[in-house]
Design a protein around this nucleic acid. Structure first.
Length: 590
RNA sequence: GGAGCUGUGGUGUAGAUGGUUAACAUAUCGGCCUGUCAAGCCGAAGACCGCGGGUUCGAGUCCCGUCAGCUCCGCCA
């Protein structure tokens, strides 16, 4: 440190420094002016300390102190003084001492900040984002940056200890089909061509395995041009890991160790290992989601057998079409009004269900528009199956299996208990399907990505029954949040070619788009696989934040703009000309 | 692409069913004040109510549109 500027951090001063001469620098916070006596809270990265200016100890310095305002940057020299017992402030770490200032220089003045530089402020997020540099001055925001730093450092140290090599991959790369929409960067040297920003370093990390790196990682920035959410930004950070000669279990153990260390370091919590594993199908069946929150029960009931015995046409029709009838019990649901249930029905419709059936469970049976379709013994049977008691409400959805599960799974989260365990519940969701059918495009899409290896025993089903093929893919889930995912990759070019073909890519197309990968796989690609953890989500979970925006220093808004810099913005005609880009006027659609 | 919520001095809010000086707190500025730390007391300044239309004698308030932020659905291999 430059001793001329600063000898101590404000927040680190304590009774141990009494009588010490110190030089401090920082920002003026609150000012308490008593006329002949002025108190200033001086704040720097470490915290704050009280400066005292006494008129009797020199007019010139005191006059300067009177000009101080919030946000001014000052360098002060003085002596650490103990406070008399009645003036000690126990709510402050530095509350037992203060600084008797002997000289001071104002390094910079400041306009009045647009909001208070302190914790727990209640301001429009607009304003915080526009003045993000001031927002980050607030202690709680600094704490988040520090937490993120600690997490990243721990991750680097942990992986280094297991021989992982941190390697950078390009931001300017080629656009590949599938997946999210790319952010494109026009090429000037080759006008009319575009780079794409990477949605993830997926192909590079696999190619590094062909290079013989064996253990790679990167704290990688990724870019996806899709609509935003509280937990989604157009650019985000991924802890990207790829390994050769690792079994899935090896990789799980490695990841579990990493996550456990994070929780231990940040929260002092011992995490039970190994983590629970659950097949995708089971997760959907029991919880109606591929990222179940295991901190509470309220599992879905499979009611196909009972529905078959009912007279209810809607249920019958769903079953005939190969669908499913699922049920969800809301304990104590009788407090829900008819209107509440109508709202739920509306929500179910918005999620894609054709409707939502419901029943108030009473001693004598069901109070429900559909009760007439169910004989009393059948009602009895369903109640038993769902462990329903008088006072509960039962919800039913009949649709395709996936939709029935998903709709009720969504409603389940709405009725989650208020009080949930503090102990984090980690879970591996495994055995995802390799493909799903894309109705819109009328073709199969990869559920994970096209480089995911199918389970060997499912390979014979690949062409005949593709939807039954399970992938060697996995997601890491924590309390209902997906914090990572990955897979074992295809490492032989013939399997990879078969998959591309299933995805509807002709040989020419795959050669054109992924030729470099297919080529690489023919040069002794080792068995490999990896995982990517969402760093922003991890840090947000560790800091207890709902939105990842809180742990991203300079985030974008829901329309992907930066309120501070004004990005995205227009560019000059000259820039456009160099890129041979012509901006078309906006289409007026009316 | 769709839905919902929000937008009033610098900041945070109040302004039932339209009615004329838009209220309060805090910050700001000035004065007083030697032990405050949410300092106190006195005083001053500060908003054409996101923007644009419309209805009305009259709009912060009602209607339409639009912009911005947030949340959700679609989307996100």
């Amino acid at each position: 440190m430059d001793q001329a500027q600063k000898t101590h951090y404000c927040g680190k001063l304590s009774t141990g420094h009494v009588n010490r001469k110190v030089k401090l620098t920082g920002w003026v916070g609150k000012r308490r002016d008593h006329g002949g006596l002025i108190f200033i809270d001086l704040r720097d990265r470490s915290g704050q300390v009280q400066l005292v200016f006494d008129q009797r100890q020199g007019r010139e310095l005191f006059n300067l102190a009177e000009t101080l305002r919030g946000g001014y940057v000052v360098a002060a020299e003085g002596e650490i003084l103990p406070r008399s017992p009645e003036t000690i402030n126990p709510s402050l770490p530095t509350g037992e001492i203060e600084v008797g200032v002997t000289s001071m220089e104002v390094l910079n003045i400041s306009k009045t900040p647009p909001f208070y530089i302190e914790d727990n402020i209640n301001v429009d997020e607009n304003l915080r984002l526009r003045y993000r540099y001031l927002d980050l001055r607030r202690p709680e925001m600094l704490k988040r940056l520090q937490l993120r730093h600690r997490a990243v450092k721990l991750i680097r140290d942990y992986l280094d200890q297991y021989d992982f090599l941190e390697i950078e991959t390009p931001f300017l790369t080629r656009s590949t089909p599938e997946g999210a929409r790319d952010f494109l960067v026009p090429s000037r040297l080759q006008g009319g061509s575009f780079y794409a920003l990477p949605q993830s370093p997926q192909l590079f990390k696999q190619l590094l395995m062909v290079s013989g790196i064996e253990r790679y990682f990167q704290i990688a920035r990724c870019f996806r041009d899709e609509d935003l959410r509280a937990d989604r930004q157009p650019e985000f950070t991924q802890v990207d890991i790829e390994t050769s000669f690792f079994s899935t279990e090896n990789l799980f153990a490695l990841t579990e160790g990493l996550v456990a260390e994070l929780w231990k370091e940040i929260h002092g919590l011992e995490i039970k290992r190994p983590f629970t594993q659950m097949p995708y199908r089971e997760a959907m069946n029991r919880f109606g989601t591929d990222k179940p929150d295991l901190r509470y029960g309220m599992e879905l009931a499979d009611l196909d057998q009972q529905a078959r015995k009912s007279e209810f046409k809607v249920f019958q029709a769903a079953l005939e079409k190969g669908g499913s009838v699922k049920g969800l019990r809301l304990p104590g649901g009788k407090r829900l009004s008819r209107k509440d249930l109508d709202d739920l029905t509306l929500q179910a419709r918005q999620l894609g269900a054709k409707g939502l059936a419901w029943a108030y469970v009473e001693e004598e049976g069901w109070r429900s528009p559909i009760s007439k379709f169910f004989a009393p013994p059948l009602i009895e049977e369903i109640n038993r199956k769902m462990e329903a008691e008088a006072g509960d409400v039962l919800l039913f959805v009949a649709d395709s299996w996936e939709l029935s599960c998903a709709v009720l799974g969504h409603l389940r989260t709405k009725f989650a208990p208020d009080k949930l365990s503090d102990q984090p519940h980690f879970l591996w969701v495994v055995d995802f399907p390799l493909f799903h059918f894309n109705e819109e495009e009328q073709r199969y899409d990869s559920d994970h990505h096209p480089f995911t290896a199918p389970r060997a025993e499912d390979m014979p089903l690949l062409e005949g029954e593709p939807l039954s093929v399970r992938a060697r893919a996995y997601d890491l889930v924590l309390d209902g949040v997906e914090i990572g995912g990955g897979s074992m990759r295809i490492h032989d070019s013939s399997t990879q070619a078969r998959i591309f073909k299933m995805l509807g890519l002709t040989e020419e197309e795959s050669a054109e788009k992924f030729g470099f990968l297919l080529d690489a796989l023919t040069y002794g690609a080792p068995p490999h696989g990896g995982i990517a953890l969402g760093l922003d989500r991890l840090v947000a979970l560790l800091s207890g934040d709902e939105s990842i925006r809180q742990v991203i220093p300079f985030p974008k808004t829901a329309t992907a703009s930066c309120l501070m810099t004004g990005a995205p913005s227009n560019v000059s005609e000259k820039q456009l000309e160099e890129l041979r880009i012509i901006i078309e006027p906006e289409k007026d659609e009316k």
